[in-house]
Design a protein around this nucleic acid. Sequence first.
DNA 1: ATGACGATTGAAAATCGA
Length: 262
Amino acid sequence: MSFSLATWNINSVRLREPIVLKLLQEEAPDVLCLQEIKSPADKVPTQGFADLGYTHMVVRGQKGYNGVAILSKLPIRDVGDKDFASLGHARHVAAQLENGTTIHNFYVPAGGDVPEREVNEKFGQKLDYLTEMRDWFRSEKPEKSILVGDLNIAPREDDVWSHKKLLKVVSHTPIEVEHLAETQDAGGWVDVTRQDIPEGELYSWWSYRAKDWDAADKGRRLDHVWATSDISNAGHSSRVLRAARGWEKPSDHAPVFATFDL
DNA sequence: ATGACGATTGAAAATCGA
């Protein structure tokens, strides 16, 4: 079988229900992983999604902050969550398709402003979150798995608009990139987006503060699609739907897509 | 320097995002 998947930091699923529906109508991924839904589970608007065929949902909600959800046209089974770094936040949930593929949906902490754990507790929490992800994957040895989400790190030089200018900016500092690489290595994860699009500038997030985000194009690739090496060759057709950043009342993130033949 | 904004809570201004 073949299924398509998208990951999107939606920045409030209730406020942006109209553009979620637009994405489902126009792009029709089989599975949509959302982050920053900023809603308790029982307040997520599900009727419109169900009307479009997305009758399955696995969700971890939280009032006001964070929150992740997996919407699916295909049957999915809730296979749990982990509270890495013991933050008490809803930042991870996993679901399994009937063919045995596990999908992890992550919202890694942003990490605050200053990239030093001594002066900024949030930065330390971000690093700790990644370290605990790493240790978990070392012990779990994931197989037949896909990991998506807003990992809040742009690892490569061509994942940011200016490598030099962002070296000391949280999301692109060497220590964060190192932590992400260790996490990726621990699970044997392959970056499917960069497997498909190995060359060139590629972003999935543009700040709300830019006067003209499209013209300035000062973006970062914070949103990722990974797969374990046993199935990474089944991944293809990766793309970023940049147009969604320009939709009515947009999220500051654009959705990232991939298709898997499994 | 992108910090020029936007969402949430709670009912104004603070907090968070990255």
